[in-house]
Computed example of a mutant assay.
Amino acid sequence: MNIALWIAGGLLAVVALGGGITKSFMPKEKLAAARGAEWIAGVGSGFLRTLGVLELLAAAGLVLPAVVGIAPVLVPVTAVCWILLMIGAMVTHGRLGQFNLVALNLIYLALAVFVAWGRFTLAPFSA
């Protein structure tokens, strides 16, 4: 179970890192022109950058606390925060009729539920 939780957390961290880098550093206009990112045109640059920073923090929070052994309880806490972020993403994409992206966000949400549940109950890290 521990290996499966590490894999799920690592996959989510890679997804969060990719999203965080693009939202934090790419120009808003270029991002808004991408397929599936039409929602970006309707938000402010500050909001977009904030989402990017949150995703970068999620990438770190899903892996680093356990790797360095400092406050490893932050791994499942971060997974719960990722769940909330994915609910927001699903609502946003659902309103735009982008149901393929809703399905993708649902997969990410399921992985985060697995990590949160697993690290809180099945295989918690010992501090």
Score class of each variant (00 low, 15 high):
Trp6Phe: 05
Trp6Val: 02
Trp6Asn: 06
Ile7Cys: 07
Ile7Glu: 01
Ile7Ala: 11
Ile7Ser: 03
Ile7Tyr: 02
Ala8Tyr: 01
Ala8Pro: 04
Ala8Leu: 03
Ala8Ser: 04
Ala8Cys: 04
Ala8Arg: 04
Ala8Thr: 00
Ala8Ile: 00
Gly9Thr: 00
Gly9Ser: 11
Gly10Tyr: 01
Gly10Pro: 00
Leu11Gly: 10
Leu11Val: 10
Leu11Ile: 10
Leu11Lys: 05
Leu11Glu: 00
Leu12Cys: 05
Leu12Phe: 03
Leu12Trp: 01
Leu12Gly: 03
Ala13Glu: 00
Val14Met: 11
Val14Ile: 13
Ala16Arg: 01
Ala16Tyr: 00
Ala16Leu: 02
Ala16Cys: 13
Ala16His: 05
Ala16Val: 02
Leu17Cys: 09
Leu17Ser: 03
Leu17Arg: 06
Gly18Leu: 06
Gly18Ile: 02
Gly18Ser: 08
Gly19Tyr: 00
Gly20His: 00
Ile21Val: 15
Ile21Trp: 08
Ile21Ala: 12
Ile21Leu: 14
Ile21Tyr: 09
Thr22His: 09
Thr22Cys: 07
Thr22Ser: 14
Lys23Tyr: 09
Lys23Glu: 09
Ser24Phe: 02
Ser24Arg: 02
Ser24Thr: 14
Ser24Lys: 03
Ser24Ala: 14
Phe25Gly: 03
Phe25Thr: 12
Phe25Arg: 09
Phe25Pro: 02
Phe25Glu: 02
Met26Gln: 13
Pro27Cys: 05
Pro27Thr: 05
Pro27Gln: 10
Lys28Asn: 08
Glu29Lys: 14
Glu29Asp: 14
Lys30Ile: 08
Lys30Cys: 02
Leu31Tyr: 05
Leu31Met: 13
Leu31Pro: 04
Ala32Asn: 08
Ala32Phe: 02
Ala32Thr: 07
Ala32Glu: 05
Ala32Gly: 08
Ala33Gln: 14
Ala33Val: 03
Ala33Thr: 06
Ala34Thr: 13
Ala34Glu: 14
Arg35Pro: 11
Arg35Ala: 15
Arg35Glu: 15
Arg35Tyr: 12
Gly36Thr: 07
Gly36Glu: 07
Ala37Gly: 07
Ala37Asp: 13
Glu38His: 12
Glu38Leu: 09
Glu38Lys: 12
Glu38Gln: 13
Trp39Phe: 15
Trp39Met: 09
Ile40Asn: 02
Ile40Met: 11
Ile40Cys: 10
Ile40Tyr: 01
Ala41Cys: 04
Ala41Glu: 14
Ala41Pro: 00
Gly42Arg: 09
Gly42Gln: 10
Gly42Trp: 01
Gly42Asp: 15
Gly42Ser: 13
Val43Trp: 05
Gly44His: 05
Gly44Ile: 07
Gly44Val: 08
Ser45Gln: 13
Ser45Asn: 15
Gly46Phe: 11
Gly46Pro: 08
Phe47Arg: 07
Leu48Asn: 08
Leu48Gln: 06
Leu48Asp: 09
Leu48Ile: 11
Leu48Trp: 01
Arg49Thr: 11
Arg49Cys: 11
Thr50Val: 13
Thr50Leu: 15
Leu51Met: 15
Leu51Ser: 14
Leu51Trp: 05
Gly52Cys: 06
Gly52Ala: 06
Gly52Met: 03
Gly52Leu: 04
Val53Asp: 09
Val53Lys: 06
Val53Met: 13
Leu54Trp: 10
Leu54Tyr: 12
Leu54His: 09
Leu54Gly: 14
Glu55Ser: 13
Glu55Cys: 10
Leu56Arg: 11
Leu56Glu: 08
Leu57Asp: 04
Leu57Asn: 06
Ala58Tyr: 07
Ala58Glu: 06
